[in-house]
């Protein structure tokens, strides 16, 4: 028996919004430690890794490990039927071929359940090595989303250059070129407005704007985003989900042809 409850459907809606543009389907691996999903986008350029800890749920029970392959478009249709302040419970029997989403209104007067067929997905799991990154940048998630959106107008790719002084995002194309420089902040009132750079070695890397923009769909989940970079390895874009876990996107860099 598997049962996971969140007192507020908003978080689950936001999580799905953060992955459904990149992935058509995904396998939710459930164990007593929580729920994990790892999947590559169709073109194998990026990888999504979602971790939701069992202690972050309002109720969590998982008697046996189970993997639930879900069509994320179908899941989105179902979650659209939940009000933001509904309690959502995800339920499945052991070895079942369906999963049930139950939504309960605050006053308990409306209870709906939606059963969805599970899929057998033959997804490859990749081992992600522990890496000490040359540069780790923490910045407001809204600011990162804004920069990705702005620079995508000028080029298909953005160059991220990180030094001790700051981080610079650049794009150039037919129209011209754009550069956005962010300096590390000192003495900001609010932690969520801070820009923090931890640098061992400076890095310059090129990434596809399309994917960066897809990752920023996670912005409503977190005030801050963390970018981890080293030369010639995938960028990690991490959004923490308060008290529940995190979503990490890995993006292969563009390389000199």
């Amino acid at each position: 028996m598997f049962e996971a409850r969140l007192n507020n459907a908003t978080t689950l809606k936001k999580i799905l919004d953060a992955i459904k543009d990149l992935l058509n389907e995904g396998t939710f691996d459930c164990s007593d430690s929580g729920i994990q999903l790892q999947a590559m986008d169709n073109s194998h350029v990026s990888l999504v890794s979602l971790t939701l800890r069992s202690d972050g749920f309002d109720k969590f029970r998982c008697d046996r490990n189970l993997s639930m392959g879900m069509n994320l478009g179908s899941m989105a249709k179902i979650l659209k039927c939940a009000n933001n302040d509904d309690t959502v419970t995800i339920k499945a029997q052991d070895n079942a071929d369906t999963v049930t989403f139950m939504f309960e209104s605050q006053n308990q007067e409306k209870v709906s359940d939606y059963e969805m067929k599970l899929m057998n997905l033959d997804q490859e799991h990749l081992g992600i090595p522990e890496t000490d990154y040359s540069c780790v940048v923490r910045m407001p998630a809204m600011e990162f989303a804004r920069i990705c959106r702005d620079l995508a107008q000028f080029s298909e790719s953005v160059v991220i250059c990180c030094t001790k002084e700051g981080v610079k995002f650049s794009a150039s194309g037919d129209v011209g070129s754009a550069n956005v420089k962010l300096a590390q902040t000192f003495n900001v009132d609010k932690e969520e407005e801070a820009i923090v750079i931890e640098m061992q070695e400076p890095v310059v890397l090129t990434f596809a704007c399309r994917y960066l923009n897809a990752f920023t769909k996670a912005t409503p989940l977190s005030n801050q985003v963390q970018l981890s970079m080293s030369a010639d390895v995938p960028l990690v874009v991490e959004y923490r989900i308060a008290e529940l876990g995190h979503i990490r996107y890995y993006l292969a860099p563009k390389i000199e042809d």
Binding site: M40, H44, V45, S46, L47, E124, H125, L126, G127, I128, P129, S157, T206, A208, V233, P234, Y250, L251, A252, P253, K254, I255, E256, D257
Partner: peptide
């Protein structure tokens, strides 16, 4: 000119 890398070139299959 740059070309897009594939994520599977960086992480090994489990």
């Amino acid at each position: 000119k740059t070309k897009q890398g594939n994520i599977m070139n960086f992480f090994k299959k489990k």
